[in-house]
Amino acid sequence: MIAQQLLNGLITGSVYALFALGFTLVFGTHKILNLAHGSVFMSGAFAAYFAVLNGLPLWFAMVLAMLCGGLVCYVIELAAFRPLRSRGQIEFAALIASIGANLMISSLAQRISNTKVLRFPFGTFPVQFYTVMGVRISLLQIVIVCVVAILLAGLLFYMYRTSFGRQVRAVSGNERAARLLGVSPNVVFFQTFFISGALAGMAGVLIGLSFNSIHFLMGEPYLLRAFVVVVLGGLGSITGAVVAGLLLGVIQTLTVAYLPTGLSDAIIFSLLFIILLVRPSGLFGSAITATAARRQ
């Protein structure tokens, strides 16, 4: 039984990781906490839903969701964060602006969906189960793990093996120095926000498929969990986000299964609070993130 719980936890966790990757990428590179990330996630799910409804194949809907998520995220950057950037200290202002963007996008989605829960038509994804060594796993779960693994590999390749990725890392290290060396900040901003949104959009489709429910507030619980993932893994750390995402998935599944209902959230957020106090750099964060978090 525990093996089954662990497996379910790891699969939930892989989606948490996918969602949190984009969140941590933007925070690590630009020190912007994008609270509209949940609505980007939701807009990806909406895009896929309408694509499937119009008879497009699911794989194409997924690509469309990633494009849509990326675009929405970039529009948020243009409208909310770019005007603030010239002002210097933007931490808090960006937080407020992204809350505003979140409200606007989710109320648009509420209008589109008439506050109803949208469901993929029956048979969008074949319901199939396999039993391997006494553990049941569905085809959807296998696909989720594969998609997350492919996207993660792509992101790592992009960040550590291409010139674009080097530019992004240069900006995250020191934006002024990178600019002096000829890195165009606007190009970097476009890339990080687009990638961040695309990952969130895909996470939206995967969650929409696995619970078969898409609604305008679906991003909120995932955003709150992304905070836990990102702080636990260390802000801005890709490896950290993946490990912490998987860990959170397992913790959540186990607490839901073996503890009284309702206590799971209290435990998860207490964990977040304690990590912030004891080790603000997280599991994989560098000393730099620790000094950024702690008061001098």
Partner: peptide, 24 residues
């Protein structure tokens, strides 16, 4: 001990803890 955005995250966690305890 915390500063800036990290205070916001910590207090957000506090709100979530209180609300989930109210449920529990």
């Amino acid at each position: 001990r915390l500063r800036g955005v990290f205070q916001a995250i910590a207090t957000l966690a506090l709100v979530q803890i209180v609300v989930s305890l109210a449920y529990y």
